[in-house]
Design a protein around this nucleic acid. Structure first.
Lengths: 109, 109
DNA sequence: AGCCCATCTCAGCAGGAACTGATACGATCC
DNA sequence: GGATCGTATCAGTTCCTGCTGAGATGGGCT
């Protein structure tokens, strides 16, 4: 197959570099199965670490590591349980998730 | 801060593992600055490899490598120029891009 | 106080992905 | 035909990232 329009190949070598650093960083955070699984789990409401570790079949410290990265990205929030504060419950930070999806939309429209 | 509702921490350890393999793979493809830059560039229409390499400040073979991965993911299509078939022009595969954004939306709502 | 529990953090290692350099391919021009 | 151009592919190196194990932290129970 061949492109149709331009009669002569006029190269454009002065195109400015698009700023995609934030979008790529966002995608990189979602690009791991464990982190993606965590976000999917949290769509149905808050969960504690051990619940997510069991659902994903991963070790707790591994899940905790990924949660730390999601926290640094601002996509989730942690809060201790009201009755037994040993349990740490995580929930999605909805505005940040919406903003993240917007950034990805700026790549894929 | 503490979560409010549950009086006793009743753990749910039987949550099924969500299927996020495709969404995570899609995000991983977008998670590189060069690939994200390519997709951003192609939003304004088709471009050949050397144009994108110049705009991104990357070497041609490196850009070509990333294009191959985007091609394998189905996000872009390649076609040779009508007049001078040495130039390979790339354009976005819109349906696949829309599907990719849908998969990411299934994680972020 | 001591002990247990859920979670966090970190150094170390192992696997994979990205960049490089060289080479090969397909196409045009002479 | 040979030379050159734009691009693709591949092995090698480097760099990054995820998993592991052990220890630390903070909270609850007796």
């Amino acid at each position: 197959m061949r492109t149709e329009l331009p009669v002569l190949p006029e190269l454009r070598l002065d195109i400015p570099r698009p700023d995609v650093a934030e979008a790529a960083a966002t995608a990189a955070v979602l690009g791991d199965p464990v982190r993606a699984g965590i976000l999917a789990l949290l769509r149905s409401g808050p969960h504690c670490v051990c619940e997510m570790a069991a659902a994903l079949g991963e070790r707790q410290n591994n899940v905790s590591n990924h949660l730390a990265r999601l926290r640094r990205a601002g996509l989730v929030r942690a809060s201790r349980h009201m009755v037994d504060a040993r349990w740490v419950y995580y929930e999605r930070a909805e505005p940040a998730c919406a903003a993240a999806l917007d950034r990805l939309g700026s790549l894929l429209r």
